[in-house]
């Protein structure tokens, strides 16, 4: 843990993030694991705001703010150019939020995945358009309050299965991770770094501002997301082999839902349905994957 805090920091302190920001933690761990020989492309969103405002920057590696829907294709072009310039060893990181990945960026993401472009795509998922002030995205889970799914009509659709979509592309490496499990996250980034081709990391990045919990609770909330299996940790190799990651023992989903005011309008029946959905998905995942002690 000491080396984690002291060395190879590629994200400066003092960024524009909210206190307790999950994605800023993800930034730190991902870049630390990738190392200095990395270039980053990011879309509009909290990720670009956290990176800074001219003439300041919080990121110590080359960084391009691209258009909202084009993280993957911009990164693919950058990859091709770097290869032609003899910089094959430079890692290209596409860094996008759930809006830039699940919604407006899905087409370019699918294109790059299908072509197996040699980039690492990390989606930091805070489950809504947080940078514009909490509007629902297709990553927003059922029962969530956002400004476009207000109390009278909370989100009623299931979260889009982005990992399933990516798995269907047969890309060499997919992993889910959460900022509350930094060693697991960094291990997955290092694994992804070593694999050529298209690699996809889906990182749950809890957001105190949009999820409505105290800024000090970010790590706790992320741990609950994983322990309730709302957001299980696993890897998929070549779109075929599912491998579960070490996780705390399973607990009821209410622990997670009650800790956040974005779920405040849920009644018992709705909580039961969410639990059923979590159980169904978890049973499917755990039968597909074998728990592997690491």
């Amino acid at each position: 843990m000491q080396t984690l805090q002291a060395e190879n920091e590629l994200v400066h302190p003092g960024s524009f993030s909210c206190p307790g920001c999950g994605l800023t933690m993800a930034y730190r761990h991902v870049l630390k694991a990738l190392g200095r020989n990395t270039v980053v492309v990011t879309t509009a969103g909290c990720g670009s705001v956290v990176a800074g405002y001219y003439p300041m920057t919080s990121i110590k590696v080359p960084f391009f703010h691209c258009s909202f829907g084009t993280a993957a294709s911009t990164a693919a072009g950058l990859r091709a150019g770097l290869d032609m310039m003899g910089k094959e060893n430079t890692q290209v990181l596409a860094w996008a939020g759930d809006g830039g990945t699940f919604d407006i960026g899905l087409q370019s993401l699918s294109g790059a995945a299908e072509r197996n472009d040699n980039i690492l795509y990390v989606c930091y998922d805070n489950e809504a358009y947080m940078n514009t002030g909490v509007q629902r995205s297709s990553a927003t889970p059922p029962g969530t309050w956002t400004t476009t799914t207000p109390g009278e009509a909370p989100e009623d659709r299931l979260k889009k299965d982005i990992v399933g979509i990516m798995a269907a592309h047969g890309v060499p490496y997919i992993a889910t991770a959460c900022t509350s499990f930094p060693e697991d996250l960094r291990k997955k980034v290092r694994r992804a770094r070593a694999i050529p081709g298209f690699r996809f990391l889906h990182v749950l990045a809890p957001c105190p501002t949009g999820w409505m919990y105290a800024a000090s609770e970010t790590v706790h909330i992320g741990r609950l997301a994983v322990s309730t299996r709302t957001f299980p940790l696993f890897e998929i190799l070549d779109g075929e082999t599912t491998r579960l990651s070490p996780m705390p023992d399973k607990v009821p989903v209410t622990d997670y839902l009650k800790a956040q005011r974005r779920f405040r309008t849920l009644n018992e029946e709705e909580v039961r349905r969410i639990q059923e959905d979590v159980d169904r998905r978890w049973s499917r995942l755990s039968s597909a994957g074998r728990r592997k002690e690491e």
Partner: peptide, 12 residues
């Protein structure tokens, strides 16, 4: 994506 890839390529 064609123009996005050109932008990325040009940045290299």
């Amino acid at each position: 994506s064609a123009m996005a890839a050109c932008i990325g390529g040009s940045l290299s």
